[in-house]
Design a protein around this nucleic acid. Sequence first.
DNA 1: CTTAGGATCGCCT
DNA 2: GGCGATCCTAAGC
Length: 189
Amino acid sequence: MSSTILAGIDFSSPSHLVARQLIGVTVLVDGVGGRIVETEAYDGEDPASHSYSGPTDRNVAMFGPPAHAYVYRSYGIHWCLNFVCREEGHGAGVLIRALEPVTGLETMVERRGTTDHWLLCSGPGKLCQALGVTRALNGRSLAAAPFELAPAPPGIEVVSGPRIGISKAVDVPWRFGLAHSRWVSKPFR
DNA sequence: CTTAGGATCGCCT
DNA sequence: GGCGATCCTAAGC
C-alpha cells in the first residue's frame, strides 16, 4: 500500500488535524498552484459532510485511501477539491478553500478570465478553475503527477472558525486559515 | 455597503 | 421537486 505521509503530513490522521497542518503547504497541478491559506475539515460522523450518509457514486473517493483527491461538482457548475484523510473507509476529507497564487500566474489569469490576482484562488470553485481541476482528477493520488505537494515552512500561525456555506453543524470550528493572510475567501474573526 | 437571483448537476425525499 | 461544502452580476440603501 502507498504511504499516507506526504508533505510532512500523516493523512491517516483525523480531518481537522490534517486541515490545520495543510495551511502553508504548497500544492501544484501540472506545475500551476500556490500556498494553501484556507481549508475546511469534513468527517464521516459529521452531518455537514458529503460522506455522512455513506458512499455514493459521487463521494466514493472519500472512502478510498488517504492522500488521494476527492473532486465533486458544486451547484452543478463549479468543481471543488478535497484531500482524503483518516483511515480508509471512514469517509473524511479536507476541502481546499483558498490558495495564495505562486506558480503559473499567466495560466491562472487565462483560465479565470480576470487579471485581478486577488480573485484567482480565493474560493474552492475559483482555485479549481485556476488550477484546471476537474472530475478527471477524482480519486487520483496526491503523491503522483499531475499533483505536487511541498511541505509548509516552520512557524505557520493558524486561525480557525466556523465553516462556510453549510446548514448543518454550523458551529463546528473546522475552517482553518493562515493568520493575517489576505488571500482567504472570507476574513476570519 | 448589503441583498437577490441565475446558472445547472447529483442526490435526496 | 428541493436543496446544496459556489460564484458572478445587478440592483437597492
